[in-house]
């Protein structure tokens, strides 16, 4: 009978041990779980932290590949892989509310996959200035087509040669660039006595000279990572989600009696639209989002500089920048 009792104890102990040891060893520090936005996205959605104190996060995905980054912070995105735990330590210098977001496309609603980190400790810094489009009083939802488009793709290299013979000082400031659409500049260039094609080439040059090769590369990278899935890798508004987006727009406009606008991603290769849009207007759309059109709000994600780089890159769908290396 003693042996029987020993056997029972051993058996039960073994069965308990395999459950209790893992539970005891479980890392209880903050784990951020990622699921597709349809299945509730991040959990938890709000994280508390204190300024000046490192925040250690364990990240794991419960379905597909996701990524983690904090908006407006200089940090490399961390892959959040299914069934794998990655760790990241964040340090916030300033108190405030930060947005963390998914950096790898995980479906049509990927961009909804966001959460906030509330960093306490002292007063939050003053609010940032109002975005430029507000200061300029632009209605970013109004259509902005141009009456005429260039007959050939405007070339920055050709424009650069012309720039040596005409005075462009008044058109060359960042303030001027940001507040004017290419078409407005094209019209303002009438004073230079250049012909239409030449004026477009100069616009192309002016636009190119407001950015750098690095800026364009950064813009291209951010575009590929964040925009191309809807707007298309070549800017044509024909990304892999374009059809789904249109379909979801149709269903919601049916339910809302057509009040919702069609959810077609903007076509950056469409000269009519692009040449009538100033950088400030595009920045407004980018940072504020499309208000129901399916265009995400990127204001809490991109830094000011990143947004200008993306916008500089967007104009490259209209202008020929080859031959300019700087």
């Amino acid at each position: 009978m003693k042996r029987e009792i020993l056997a029972r104890i051993l058996l039960l102990a073994l069965c308990l041990v395999v459950v209790l040891i893992p539970l005891a060893l479980r890392d209880r520090s903050l784990t951020l779980r990622a699921r597709m936005p349809e299945d509730d996205g991040w959990s938890p959605q709000v994280i508390q932290a204190a300024a000046g104190q490192p925040l250690r996060l364990r990240l794991t995905s419960e379905d597909v590949t996701h990524g983690f980054a904090v908006g407006q912070m200089e940090m490399a995105s961390v892959d959040v892989l299914p069934g794998v735990v990655s760790e990241v330590t964040l340090l916030f210098d300033e108190p405030g509310i930060y947005t963390f977001f998914c950096t790898r496309w995980c479906g049509l609603n990927h961009w909804r996959m966001r959460g906030t980190i509330e960093v306490s400790g002292g007063d939050a810094p003053a609010l940032a200035d109002a975005p430029l489009y507000v200061a300029l009083g632009l209605d970013i939802d109004a259509p902005h087509p141009v009456p005429g488009v260039p007959s050939q793709i405007p070339s920055a290299a050709r424009g650069g040669q012309l720039a040596e013979i005409v005075s462009l000082a008044e058109f060359s400031t960042p303030e001027y660039y940001r507040a004017h659409s290419p078409y407005q500049v094209y019209q303002d260039l009438v004073s230079t006595n250049l012909n239409a094609a030449e004026r477009w080439d100069v616009v192309s040059y002016l636009w190119r000279s407001q950015t750098t090769a690095e800026g364009l590369a950064e813009g291209a990278r951010l575009y590929a990572q964040n925009c191309a899935a809807c707007h298309g890798e070549t800017g044509g508004g024909d990304g892999v989600f374009a059809d789904q987006l249109a379909a979801s727009g149709q269903s919601s406009s049916q339910t809302m009696h057509g009040s919702m606008s069609a959810r077609t991603p903007a076509d950056f290769t469409d000269a009519q639209n692009m040449l009538g849009a100033s950088p400030a207007l595009l920045q407004g759309k980018l940072m504020r989002g499309g208000m129901g059109t399916g265009m995400p709000m990127w204001g809490v994600i991109f830094t000011e500089e990143q947004s200008w780089n993306i916008i500089a890159f967007l104009y490259s769908f209209q202008f020929q920048y080859q031959g300019v290396t700087r």
Binding site: L14, C15, V18, V19, P22, T60, E62, D63, P82, G83
Partner: peptide
């Protein structure tokens, strides 16, 4: 023990 651990893992482990 392995069998019980498998059930345990299925319920509390990663859903992946």
């Amino acid at each position: 023990a392995g069998f019980i651990f498998a059930i345990f893992a299925g319920f509390v482990g990663s859903p992946v």
